[in-house]
Nucleic acid binder design. Structure first.
Lengths: 170, 170
DNA sequence: TATTGTTATACTCTATAACTATA
DNA sequence: TATAGTTATAGAGTATAACAATA
């Protein structure tokens, strides 16, 4: 599928087309392909949603809040892999927009329980429509049989590379 | 493998642990897993290389320059998916550090051919050592048989989601 | 007219550290 | 002492637009 016909000597390198680029050792590098696929998926999603204030990160945040109403910000941050200080202004914005609500917990008065408002649920549905269309594209590319394998492998990578897991091995 | 035992009512959400977090629709979302895996791989690599000025993006850039000596900056930018104006200060830095050389092309005097210096090749080797160790970890997680499938699927995603490809379908 | 590379600029995302209020 | 959330701040990474040189 990938012809590797390029010569790319110094003399004719200037007329190389993307297809001619040699990847060298990168060609066997999982991390490199991971980055490329993630880049491509992100940009394709951005093109799809256009102007609207929707990103994969936003979608994930809303989906997790809906699936886990009342989580506090620290736990929410860990769930999406971001520091609590990263979350603060994001949630403040969303609350100002009326999409999210933070309620002081009764049992631990330091903690905010985070919830979607009805408007937030609506917004999540909009994002879900985009995400589903995007996912159909991805699913078609991957194929139904391979999707399960892909998700499984990606999960293994994510779980296997967290700090504790790596320390256990190395 | 994933127990889904959490209740996460508003009443006890505060004591949720990461394992209890419900993913909702995200659980079938390729893009979500892609982002997680890429995040984890990036951070594991960063932990491995520590202080040294090494990133996956840097490594990819060096590897591509070595495999395609003399490419001009615009093409190089496209090869790594970054704008030429993003590349300019990066290459200027690397040239100042003596790792990269830019030579004005004879045939097109607007263009710079980009090359690694001997020091740049050395530096690439250092990065390669790190990248290989990192890749062994990744390979172990994925397994030799599945690696080929994974690379193939990730490549399909990257290729299938570029702007032209998506326009063709949608 | 179009393209290469540079510059100025600005934006987004993120974390660290220091703080407060609670625990 | 430790944790939840906030704030101030800074850094990395990136792109857009305008430009000079060249094609």
């Amino acid at each position: 599928m990938n012809a590797t016909t390029a010569v790319d000597t110094a003399a004719d390198a200037e007329i190389a087309t993307p297809a001619d680029i040699q990847l060298g050792p990168l060609q066997q590098n999982i991390a490199f392909y991971l980055r490329r696929a993630q880049d491509a998926a992100f940009q394709a999603f951005a093109r799809r949603v256009g102007e609207e204030d929707i990103t994969p990160g936003h979608y994930a945040l809303f989906a997790i809040i809906e699936a886990n109403p009342g989580l506090n910000q620290a736990i929410l941050g860990r769930a999406i892999g971001r520091d609590k200080s990263t979350l603060t202004p994001i949630l403040a914005d969303l609350e100002r927009s009326g999409l999210v609500e933070r309620r002081r917990s009764q049992r631990d008065r330091r903690a905010n329980g985070v919830y979607l408002t009805p408007a937030g649920v609506d917004h999540l549905k909009t994002m879900q429509d985009h995400a589903q269309a995007h996912d159909r594209l991805l699913d078609d590319l991957v194929g139904p049989h391979h999707k399960a394998i892909l998700l499984h492998l990606l999960e293994r990578i994510a779980d296997g590379l967290d700090e504790a897991a790596v320390d256990r091995i190395v």
